[in-house]
C-alpha cells in the first residue's frame, strides 16, 4: 500500500537547513493500523504530510498503491489526495461556514460525484459516526468530539483506502478520545489502512503496529509490536 524508500525532507531557509526526515524507509501493507509516536519535532507530522501527499519530499522514492508520487504534477497529487486518502486532523479542520452535511460533501464535490450519490454517501457516513440527525448544524454548534467525528465522516465519505490521522484525539477529553479511537478501529476492521500519529502511548498501544520517529528516522520499529488483541485488552 505505502512504500517509502530513503525519503528525506529538508526545509531550507536563508540561514538554516533543517533535516525533518532522513533516509526514512517504511512499508505499510493493505489493512494495517499503524501508530506513529515520537517526541515533538521528531518528524512525525512531516512524515504524515509526505505520506498524505500534502507536501513534496526532497529525496527518495514514495510509492502509494503502486503510484510513484514523486513523478506526479500538482493536479495529479490533488487527485490522489481526493481519491485514495482520507485525513483526520488534530484541529478537526472543518470549514466553519459550512454545515456538517456540506463539510462532508467537500471532497465528494471535488471528485465530481453526482448529487444523488453524494447525498447517499454523506448520510451514510454521518450515520456511521452517529451525527445524522445534526447534518444541518454548523461545526461551532458541536462539541470537540462531535467535530472530530464529523471530520472522520468527511474522510469516510470518500471511501478512502488510506486514512491518515494526525493526533486525532489531541484536543479531546479521555472519553471522547476513546470513542474516536473505537471508531478508527472499526474503520480499520472494515478494510481501511490507517496511519495515526499520536503522543498518547495508551492510544499507540491499541494499534497493532507501532513505529517511533526520532530525529527524522524510525528509531524502534518493534517496540510495541505483538499481539494486537493483547495490547487492546491491556
Amino acid at each position: 500500500m505505502l512504500n517509502m524508500n530513503g525519503i528525506s525532507k529538508v526545509y531550507q531557509t536563508e540561514m538554516v537547513q533543517t533535516h525533518a526526515l532522513r533516509d526514512f524507509d517504511l512499508q505499510v501493507n493493505e489493512g494495517e493500523f499503524i501508530a506513529v509516536t515520537g517526541p515533538s519535532g521528531s518528524g512525525k507530522t512531516t512524515f504524515l504530510n509526505i505520506a498524505g501527499v500534502l507536501e513534496p519530499f526532497t529525496q527518495g522514492q514514495y510509492l502509494l498503491d503502486g503510484v510513484d508520487i514523486g513523478k506526479l504534477n500538482d493536479n495529479q497529487r490533488a487527485d490522489i489526495r481526493n481519491q485514495k486518502i482520507g485525513y483526520i486532523f488534530q484541529g478537526f479542520n472543518l470549514i466553519p461556514d459550512l454545515n456538517l452535511y456540506e463539510n462532508v460533501e467537500v471532497p465528494l464535490r471535488y471528485r465530481g460525484i453526482k448529487a444523488a450519490e453524494r447525498k447517499r454517501r454523506i448520510e451514510s457516513s454521518l450515520e456511521q459516526v452517529g451525527l445524522a440527525s445534526r447534518a444541518k448544524h454548523l461545526p461551532q454548534q458541536l462539541s470537540g468530539g462531535q467535530q472530530q467525528r464529523v471530520a472522520i465522516a468527511r474522510a469516510l465519505a470518500g471511501k478512502p483506502r488510506f486514512l491518515l490521522a494526525d493526533e486525532p484525539t489531541g484536543n479531546l477529553d479521555s472519553l471522547m478520545a476513546r470513542q474516536v479511537m473505537e471508531l478508527l478501529e472499526q474503520i480499520n476492521r472494515d478494510g481501511a489502512t490507517i496511519v495515526m500519529v499520536t503522543h498518547d502511548p495508551e492510544l499507540a498501544r491499541r494499534a497493532p503496529r507501532n513505529i517511533q520517529v526520532v530525529d527524522g528516522q524510525i528509531a524502534d520499529f518493534s517496540l510495541y509490536q505483538g499481539n494486537p488483541a493483547a495490547v487492546v485488552g491491556a
Binding site: 490533488a78 489526495r81 481526493n82 470549514i95 471535488y110
Partner: peptide, 8 residues
C-alpha cells in the same frame, strides 16, 4: 483544507 481534500 480544501487542497488537502482534493481541490486542485
Amino acid at each position: 483544507v480544501r487542497r488537502a481534500l482534493g481541490a486542485s
